[in-house]
Simulated assay, not measured.
Amino acid sequence: MKPEIISRETIKPSSPTPHSQRWYKLSVFDQMSYGVYIPIILFYTSNGGDNPCNDKGVDFFEARMHCHLQGFLNHPEFEALNLLAQGQIQCNNLDLSSTLIVQITFFDCGGMAIGVSMSHKVADISSMSAFLNDWATMARQSGEAEISAQFITSFFPPHDSLDIPEYVPRKINRVVRRFVFNASKLDALKTLATSHGVENPTRVQVVTALLYKCADAASRAVSDSPRASDLVQMVNLRRLVIPPLPDKSFGNLVWCFSISATEEGEVEFHDLVAQLKEGIAGFRLTYGISFSWYELSRLVSEFRKASASSFKRKGNMVRFTCTSWCRSPLYQVDFGWGKPVWISCTNVMWNTFILMDTRSGDGIEALVSLEEQNMNVFEHDEELLRFASLNPNAFEAP
């Protein structure tokens, strides 16, 4: 299956941008973000209506997929999902790249997919979610609503002396798989952790710990010699800084902490959950209390340099990254024809886990990207499959 591109255009702003607002200065967090796109695909069933999207100032594509949406979502393959979003994986040069790219794909049944790719240099998932909901509100209310973004550059001004390397994706034969954890399996994972003395673990923490444990085991299984690994956990800063920033603060407001698995022996699930809990508690103490916004940006800059140096010294270490999109109101994005029946993303970077809510809100979908030989082991891990379903029907998912 391959969508047929019906039209392509660059839609200009409805009025000229004032000269004083023509250039947008990246914040220090934007400067340190990868030059990639965040590609999200929202799927909608047909409701018999004909409401056009409200689109301004973006690269806009229309396409047609000659199949029915329900069949497409039966067991969605990521090779096919990649065809529904136009965002290339790199956008290092913002002077030459589009900040936002939209592709609307119509299915034969009347359903549609909206693929939205936004540059990670200007936004994180919280910013993108807020933008999508504001855009959808404007479409439903015939343009009466307004975009309510609050830009963060004034809080975290750019640093002229930062040495930010260009992002170059590694040429690795990576494979992406989707695993779904329903509410009962999440409860079972929490019970397993608490039975070993971990108090009140979150659903994100238990899923992250299990994915990391199984990915670490897969890495060891295909390696000639055991290698230590670590997991970088991304954290939304909006509610951690003092005073807190609004949820609709626009830009990159995320940072990270890490946990690790040593070379000796198999790592225990409950130990990883405990590390994640301790990590977020330590993160709050280090970055969330008594620091001004300026001091926070300085600390983050220093942490990035120290982390890069440490990783180079360890050399042979395997690094995984986890980012959670849970609690982002993506399933509330209603352009006037109802809420999405499923949401996913494409171009998941190597050794990365992306967590997002199921449609019901009480489960978690995990997108896992690993090297092919690692994935061949990972997707057959018996412990993982006791708690997660591998790529179930997305149309019928809770």
Results as ranks from 00 to 15, higher is better:
Gln332Trp: 08
Asn74Met: 08
Asn93Ile: 09
Ala281Cys: 06
Thr99Ala: 12
Tyr34Lys: 12
Ala394Pro: 02
Arg178Cys: 11
Phe151Ala: 06
Thr137Asp: 10
Phe320Met: 07
Cys109Met: 03
Pro329Arg: 14
Ile164Cys: 07
Lys314His: 09
Asn133His: 04
Cys322Gln: 05
Asp95Asn: 14
Ala149Thr: 01
Asn54Ala: 13
Pro201Arg: 04
Lys312Ser: 10
Phe155Asp: 09
Pro52Gly: 03
Tyr287His: 13
Thr105Asn: 05
Asp160Ser: 13
Asp357Gly: 04
Ser98Ile: 00
Glu365Cys: 12
Leu73Tyr: 06
Ser290Gln: 10
Glu278Leu: 13
His270Lys: 05
Cys91Leu: 02
Pro246Gln: 02
Tyr167Trp: 15
Gln90Ile: 13
Glu382Gly: 01
Ala188Phe: 09
Asn47Gln: 10
Ser119Gly: 03
Gly115Pro: 00
Ser223Asp: 12
Leu385Gly: 04
Arg178Thr: 06
Glu371Lys: 10
Arg319Pro: 00
Ser7Pro: 02
Gln332Asp: 14
Phe387Ile: 07
Arg140Pro: 02
Gln205Thr: 08
Gly115Ala: 09
Tyr212His: 12
Phe269Cys: 04
Pro243His: 01
Ala85Val: 14
His159Ala: 07
Arg177Gln: 12
Gly282Ile: 06
Ala130Pro: 00
Gln86Leu: 09
Phe61His: 12
Ala281His: 13
Thr153Glu: 13
Asn391Met: 05
Glu371Asn: 10
Val333Asp: 00
Lys25Trp: 14
Arg178Glu: 03
Asn376Met: 11
Ala85Gln: 09
Phe311Cys: 06
Glu382Pro: 10
Val206Phe: 10
Cys345Trp: 03
His270Asp: 11
Lys185Ile: 04
Phe335Gln: 04
Glu266Thr: 14
Gln150Val: 15
Gly361Arg: 11
Glu146Asn: 09
Ser310Ala: 15
Ser301Arg: 09
Lys25Gly: 06
Val377Ile: 15
Phe156Cys: 03
Lys312Ala: 14
Ala193Thr: 08
Leu330Ser: 00
Ile343Asn: 01
Ala139Ser: 15
Asn374Phe: 06
Asn236Gly: 13
Leu237Arg: 01
